[in-house]
Nucleic acid binder design. Structure first.
Length: 325
DNA sequence: ATGGTTTTTACTGCGTC
DNA sequence: GACGCGGTAAAAACCAT
C-alpha cells in the first residue's frame, strides 16, 4: 500500500564505482577522498581531484564555445551562433550547398526549367568543391584520421588536432613522396600525444594501414618540419586506461600515480619507456592494494614484456620506499 | 655506419596451490 | 604438475652521434 519514498535502491552501496557514493552532493569543491582541490578538465569532460586524481564527474558538457578560435581575431569575431567551423571536414564545413528541395526563398515550388538549372548548378558546385587535388587529398586523409581515431577511442579534440596537423603538413608541401595514410597516421599519433592521451606505436600500427617503419619515419619528419613540440609521453596518462582494462579499483589507480610521481622525483624515470613505467606502476599498485593481477595480464594489457615490468616495478618500489603516503 | 642504452626473447630455478 | 614470480644472457630495437 504505502511505500516509503525515501527507499532508494540498495545498489548504491555495494559497488564503489567512481562516483555514486554521493549522487547529488557535488556542490563542494573538494575531493571526497582526500579533500584536495577539484579542477574541471573541459578537454576530457571530467572533474578531477588535483591531489589524488580521482575522477569525480565524468561526461560533463563542455561549457565552452562550440568552435575553437585559432587566433585572436577569430576569437573576437565569432559569437556563439552558427555552425562551428571544424577542421575535420576538408572544407571546414564552410562550403556552399545548394538545397535539395526545389523551393525558392519563399517556399514556392520552382518551375521545371528552374529546377533543371538548379540541378546543374548542384552538380557543378559539388565538382568544384572537391576538384583540386589537395582538397581531395584532405578529404581522404581526414576520413582515415576519423576511422583510426574511433578505432582507438580517441576523443574529438584529438581528431581536431590531428586534422590541424595534417592540414599544416599539406600546406607546407610535406606530402610528396609520402603516403596519405602515413602522414594521417603520424598526425594522429602526434595529436594524441600532444593532447595527453597518447597511444603507443603498437596501437597505432594496429589500426593503420602503414607499417611501423613508415610511421615512425613520417612522424619524425613531420615533427621536425612543422617544429611541433611533443614532450615524451607522461606515464601517468596511460594509467587510467590500463587500470580500467584490468578492472582495478580507483585506489590502485591512485597508488599507481603516486608511485610514478615518487619515481619522477628520484629521477628513475628518464630514458625509460613511458608505457613500461605505467604498466609497472599499475602492477605494483595492484600488489599494494591486494588486488590480484598477474604480470602476464598487465603485460598483455599494456603490450609490454613481463621482464620490463619486473625491472621497472622494482625500481618504482625502491623510489617509493622512503616516502610512504 | 657505430656504439651505447633499453626492451625483448628465451630459458632456468624456486615456491605454492 | 601447472602457475606465478624472479633472475640472467644474448638478441633486437632504438637513438644520438
Amino acid at each position: 500500500m504505502s511505500e516509503s519514498p525515501t527507499r532508494t535502491s540498495e545498489r548504491v552501496q555495494e559497488r564503489n564505482r567512481t562516483t555514486e557514493t554521493e549522487e547529488e552532493s557535488e556542490e563542494a569543491d573538494v575531493c571526497p577522498e582526500c579533500s584536495g582541490n577539484l579542477v574541471a578538465d573541459a578537454e576530457h569532460g571530467e572533474t578531477v581531484c588535483e591531489e589524488c586524481g580521482l575522477v569525480v564527474e565524468e561526461d560533463e558538457i563542455d561549457p565552452g564555445p562550440e568552435w575553437r578560435a585559432f587566433d585572436s581575431s577569430e576569437r573576437d569575431q565569432k559569437s556563439r551562433v552558427g555552425a562551428p567551423t571544424t577542421n575535420m571536414m576538408h572544407d571546414k564545413g564552410l562550403s556552399t550547398n545548394i538545397g535539395w528541395q526545389n523551393k525558392d526563398a519563399y517556399g514556392r515550388q520552382l518551375s521545371a526549367s528552374q529546377r533543371e538549372k538548379m540541378q546543374r548548378l548542384r552538380t557543378w558546385n559539388e565538382r568544384f568543391r572537391t576538384r583540386d587535388s589537395k582538397e581531395r587529398n584532405l578529404k581522404q586523409a581526414l576520413g582515415e584520421i576519423d576511422r583510426m581515431a574511433s578505432a582507438l577511442g580517441l576523443p574529438e579534440n584529438v581528431r581536431e588536432t590531428a586534422s590541424v596537423i595534417y592540414r599544416r603538413a599539406l600546406d607546407e608541401d610535406l606530402l610528396p613522396g609520402r603516403s596519405i595514410e602515413g602522414v594521417a597516421t603520424a598526425s594522429l599519433y602526434a595529436a594524441a600525444r600532444q593532447a595527453g592521451n597518447p597511444r603507443s606505436l603498437d596501437e597505432m600500427e594496429r589500426v593503420s594501414r602503414v607499417g611501423r617503419m613508415e610511421l615512425t619515419r613520417t612522424y619524425r619528419y613531420i615533427i621536425r618540419e612543422l617544429s611541433l613540440e611533443v614532450q615524451p609521453a607522461d606515464p601517468k596518462s596511460y594509467v587510467p586506461r590500463f587500470a580500467s582494462e584490468l578492472d582495478l579499483s580507483d585506489e590502485a589507480e591512485m597508488r599507481a600515480r603516486q608511485l610514478l610521481d615518487a619515481a619522477a622525483e628520484t629521477g628513475a624515470i628518464s630514458g625509460k619507456s613511458p608505457v613500461g613505467l605505467a604498466a609497472a606502476a599499475i602492477y605494483a599498485a595492484a600488489l599494494l592494494t591486494n588486488e590480484k593481477v598477474t604480470q602476464s595480464e598487465v603485460s598483455e594489457a599494456a603490450d609490454i614484456s613481463e621482464v620490463t615490468i619486473r625491472n621497472r616495478y622494482k625500481e618504482l618500489l625502491e623510489a617509493d620506499g622512503g616516502v610512504p603516503a
